[in-house]
Structures are given as C-alpha cells and as structure tokens.
Simulated assay, not measured.
Amino acid sequence: MSPTAAGGSTPTDALAGPASRLGLTKGMVVQELGWDSDSDDELRVAIEDTIDSDMVDGDYGNVVDVVLLWWRDEDGDLVDGLVDSLTDLVGGGVIWLLTPKVGRANSVDPADITEAAPIAGLALTTTAAVSKDWAATRLVTPKTPG
C-alpha cells in the first residue's frame, strides 16, 4: 500500500480498509452466503461498519446490491454456488467470492474460479486483498444490450 497525497485517507478508508476496497458504501444491501466459523470476523465487522447496517442472509427475500460468498474447496460445485448466489442480486450487482488464500486449508484453485464464472453466467473482473487468510474475487453479470 502506498501513502496517498497530503491528508491521506478518508475517515471511511481508515475505518473500513478492506471493505472500501470491495467498493462498498453506506446504505448498500450486502447478502452474506457461506459464512462459517472460519470466516474472517474482522472483515465482516468492517463491511457492516461501512454499509452502516447488518448484512442479510439467504432468507432475505428482496434484492441486494452485493453478495459476499464465502467458498471453500470442500463446499462442493462452485458453479452451483455461484448460480445460487445470483438469486437475490440486483441487475448490475456484484458478487465477491471469498476463498481461502492459496496455501491455506480448503483453498480454491484460481483456475477453478476462472472456469466456473462463465458457466454460471458471470465475468471475473478483479481481485482484492481483504484479509490475511482470504482472497476476494469480483464477479459480475455481463452487460446485455437493451
């Protein structure tokens, strides 16, 4: 990380850090799927502080701006997980796929993500450093004409 111009970071950046790298802002509705005891609680708190609300779960029943999908190699078919995560996602919304970093238990091979995304109807756009143990991959639905 490099320092920014005089005055540096905004208060939101100072508080949120990784959550702001995910493009999250106050008022967004973030759905969290795949949470388990190994999920990064510091990241979860930073996200909720940034959006100024609790994240919602899979039973929310309304559209969400962002889906935060915790996924481990042992969780099954990634394509199915990605397709399921689209259920409540608003058009133009983002899925952040959080996977254990390479070398950690249950890490997901990046090639598996690259292969699964288009099958699920998603495009892989970027990755972000968000946690010591978790990698984040940004997935979006490709824009359709009209």
Rank of each mutant, 00 (worst) to 15 (best):
L43G: 00
P11N: 03
L122K: 01
V66I: 15
V94G: 07
V45P: 06
P100K: 00
A117C: 13
G92V: 09
E42N: 06
S85E: 04
I113K: 00
G7T: 10
S107G: 15
G92A: 10
R21F: 07
G93S: 10
G76A: 06
S37W: 11
Y60D: 05
I51W: 03
Q31Y: 02
D40I: 04
G121T: 13
L22T: 02
A16N: 03
V30A: 06
P110Y: 02
L97Q: 01
P100N: 00
N62P: 03
D73Q: 13
V29D: 02
R104S: 09
P11I: 02
K132I: 10
G23F: 05
T127H: 12
V67Q: 02
L97C: 01
V66R: 01
S20P: 01
T10M: 08
L124Q: 09
T114M: 04
T144P: 07
D49G: 10
V66G: 01
T126D: 14
W134I: 01
A120K: 03
L82Q: 03
P18I: 11
V108H: 01
S53H: 12
A46S: 15
G92S: 12
K143S: 14
T127I: 10
G23D: 06
L15S: 08
E32N: 14
G81F: 00
D88S: 14
V79Y: 03
G58N: 07
A123M: 13
P11H: 05
P11Q: 04
T99Y: 04
V130M: 11
T50D: 03
G34M: 05
G17F: 11
V63Q: 15
K26N: 05
L78T: 04
V90Q: 15
T12N: 10
G93L: 03
T10Q: 10
L98K: 00
Q31S: 07
V140F: 05
L78A: 04
A111R: 11
D112C: 05
D73S: 13
D40R: 05
G61R: 07
W71Y: 14
W134K: 03
G146F: 15
M1K: 15
L89A: 08
V102N: 14
G121K: 06
M55S: 09
T126I: 12
L24T: 07
L124A: 09
L82A: 03
E32R: 15
R72S: 13
K26L: 05
T114Y: 02
G91V: 08
W71P: 02
G34C: 09
L15D: 07
D75P: 03
T25D: 14
S2F: 12
I113T: 06
S2V: 13
A136C: 13
L82G: 01
V94L: 12
V102M: 15
G8E: 14
L24S: 05
S131M: 00
N106A: 13
M28I: 09
T141H: 06
A5Q: 09
A123Q: 14
A46R: 15
L124W: 09
G93I: 05
P110V: 02
D75L: 08
T10F: 11
S53G: 12
